[in-house]
Structures are given as structure tokens and as C-alpha cells.
Simulated assay, not measured.
Amino acid sequence: MSNCKRIAVVGLGTVKSAPEGASQRMMAAEAARRAIADAGLSIKDIDGAIDMRRTGGGGDRASYTDAFTRFLGVPAQFYFTIGRGGALGGLATAAATGFLDRGLANYVLCVGAVDDWTKAQAAKKQGHRGMAHAEKEGYWGKALGDLRAASHHSWMAARHMAVYGTTSEQLGAISVAERAWACLNPEARMYGRPITIEDHQNSSWVVEPYHLLDVSLISDGAIAFVLTTEDRAKDLAQKPVYVQGQGFGEVAADLWWKKDNFTHMAVAPAKEKAFAQAGLSGVEDIDCAQLYDCFTAEVLFQLEDYGWCEKGKGGEFVASGAIGPGGSIPVNTGGGLLSNWHLGDLTGYAEAVQQLRGQAGERQVENCKVALTTGHGGELVSPGMCSIHTSTILGVD
């Protein structure tokens, strides 16, 4: 990034399985411990910490007291929360860069944790389905049937179908491709459970036009990563993964009720800045793409909006097998939110780091040097799709 020190991801820690009843704080602390050890650092080296949190419209505070920094004994000189919907890793990386570039910290630990699966099981016992929905002041969609994220995200898919003729089977091709990647990833929740288009079509309706297999998983777990400057990164245990470019976009910059807002995401400004910083000429320079995939249509929109195919041609593109194993652009190579596990954009961020390090095992993308990871979410008007979009380009020398 031209006007600041080059920043690198030097440690990665994940917790995908934990003892029953493990709290968010416990999972966050363990992921943090693993990330620090992965970097070859000690807990005493960490002098800054960021807690990554999601809610629609903004990051929320932790639901527990005594944060993971004290729980683990991290001597951080600053600690704050950041995040918006599924945009966690991108925002945390941008925030940490400011501290590192100004010499306010040497090593910044970024941690996100969720216990959505546990909470969903508790809700199920009470006769509810899915994640709890926290209503905000000014929310007006419940009376119109907007009860869960699938409700208003489905509007986007339906509009794309109406305008461009996209089919449910084409959306299903995204699910099938990501499941194929998950079947190459022993850590994925859906490992060993391949699906077909017929399986997608036969899965239950959630809200039209979305079947169950169009919808992301809910998970318990935590992801942590350590950021530092290039000069320090070269002496650590892992090959540095550099932050080559970042950009951000916001659909709410336009009139939210304009119908074209329901067939695209705020990719253009984010892509322009991120690609320019990274010195990329276009998507042909991307070796793998970890695209935010809370629902299948979001993948379709990004493939179009970034330029892998023309607007309205995304359905044909994914149906061709372009994003699955052996395709022209590997997308969500760990299985994504649809088939691996769900922790916002941290799922793709962690997968990008593994791919760039050459640690992805059977699913490893050959000669992977540049990875795009994106984030999405945080509706400012609800119900509606006025959401942030983050582009973070990671790479290795």
C-alpha cells in the first residue's frame, strides 16, 4: 500500500470444534493462543487487540465481561470492537494498519468468535428456527414477513431472476461447486457429503426463491490472526502473507430503493481502490477468490460485479463449472459459508491465508500468489440491502 508500511498476516488460529458449552470468550482466547503460537510469538509480544463482532448496521459489544485479552493474559495497550454484518476481517485489517503504520503497536491480534449453533439449538427447543433476530429501532419489516436475513436477501435473488432470467438451478450450481470444495477439506462441516443439482432442487424451501441449500451454515467457533509490519514479519515462523490492497463500498451511498440496488453489490468503489493499491490490472490476476456467500446469489453478483463475467451472465458462468475444482477461477476453496463454516468474512480470510501459505492440502490451488477475500453485510435500512462491501487482496512474494 503505497503511502504506508507493508502489513502482513503472520499468525492464524482457528477453533472449529469446542467442548459443549464452551463460551465465546473461551473459543476466542483459544483461537488467539493458536494464532500467537503459529506466528512464533509469545503472548507478551502482543500490544494491540481487536475484537471482531457482527450485527446488522454495526459491530456490537461482546456478550460477556472480561474480554479474551485478559482471559489469555495479553498485555494489549488498546482493545476495541469492530465489524459490520459479515464484514469483520477487512475492517479489522484496515484499523490495525493505522496503528502499525504509525508505530502505535508492533503486533495486533484480531479475534472473532460466534456461538450461533448453540444459540440456534436453544431456540429450536423453544419452537423457533434459525438464528435469533435482534430488532433495532426503526425496523419496520416484520409485519411484511421480513423475519430473518433470508427474507430480505431473497429479494435480491428474485430481482436478478426477473431481470436477467437467472434460474434456481443456476444458483444451485454455486452450492454444488462449494460443496465439491468442502469435500476436499477435512475440516469442513460438510466434508464427505457431496450434493447434486437435484439435491439442491429437492431441498426444502426457506423463502422463495431460496432452497435450504442456498443458505449458509450457522456455526460455533473462532478465528484469530496476527498482523505486523514487513520488517518484523520476515523474522517470524510463517511465510508472511501481505495485505496488498483494500477497498470499501456502500450501497447506501445511492438511493436504497432504486431497483438496481437489488441486482448488484457495492463492488465498484471497493474493487477500484483495492486493485489499484495491489497493482492488479483485473480479475485475471486473482488466483483464488474467497467471496462472501451468506446466500448463493451474493456469489453470483460478485462474479458479475468484479468482472469474471458480464452482468446478467452469472448464472451461465457458474453453471459451466467455472468456480468449482478444475474451473477457471477457484471460488471459496474451503467450502465457504455454505459448506465449510460461518464466521463472516473471516471464513474466507482464513482460507486465503492457508492457500497463500500452501497449506490447503488436497484443495490447494496451484501456484497461488494472490487471493481476493470479500466481506458483506450490515444493513443500514431494514428491511433492505444497503450493505457494506469490503475487498481485501492478500498475496505472497
Score class of each variant (00 low, 15 high):
Leu104Gly: 10
Gly103Asp: 10
Asp60Cys: 06
Gly83Val: 02
Ser63Phe: 01
Gln77Thr: 15
Gly56Asp: 11
Gln126Leu: 13
Gly90Pro: 02
Gly130Ser: 13
Val74Met: 10
Ala113Lys: 02
Met131Asn: 13
Ala87Ile: 04
Tyr139Gly: 06
Trp140Leu: 01
Phe80Val: 04
Gly103Tyr: 11
Ala113Gly: 00
Val114Cys: 01
Thr93Lys: 04
Asp115Glu: 14
Ile82Thr: 13
Gly58Leu: 09
Thr65Met: 11
Arg53Phe: 06
Ala92Leu: 08
Asp60Pro: 00
Leu144Asp: 15
Lys124Ile: 09
Gly130His: 09
Arg53Ala: 09
Ala95Thr: 03
Asp66Gly: 12
Ala132His: 11
Val111Trp: 04
Ala87Leu: 05
Thr55Cys: 07
Ala123Phe: 14
Gly58Ser: 08
Ala132Ser: 14
Lys119Asp: 00
Ala62Pro: 00
Asp66Lys: 13
Leu104Cys: 15
Ala120Glu: 14
Leu72Met: 08
Gly98Glu: 11
Gly86Ile: 02
Tyr107Val: 09
Lys125Arg: 09
Asp116Ser: 13
Pro75Glu: 12
Gly85Ile: 02
Gly98Arg: 13
Phe78Trp: 09
Val74Phe: 08
Ala120Pro: 02
Val74Ala: 15
Phe99Asp: 03
His128Gly: 01
Ala123Met: 15
Asp116Val: 05
Thr65Gln: 14
Lys124Trp: 13
Gly83Arg: 04
Ala76Thr: 12
Leu88Asn: 03
Tyr139His: 14
Pro75Asp: 14
Lys125Asn: 05
Thr69Met: 09
Gly85His: 07
Ala87Asp: 02
Arg61Ile: 01
Asp115Cys: 07
Gly98Asp: 09
Gly56Leu: 07
Gly89Ser: 14
Ala92Val: 12
Thr55Ala: 13
Gly57Glu: 08
Trp140Ile: 06
Gly83Gln: 06
Ala62Tyr: 01
Gly141Phe: 06
Lys124Gly: 11
Ser63Leu: 09
Thr55Pro: 00
Gly130Val: 04
Ala94Val: 14
Arg129Gln: 10
Asp115His: 04
Thr81Cys: 13
Met131Ala: 15
Asp60Val: 01
Leu88Val: 03
Gly103Thr: 07
Val114Lys: 02
Gln77Met: 14
Ala120His: 09
Tyr79Gly: 11
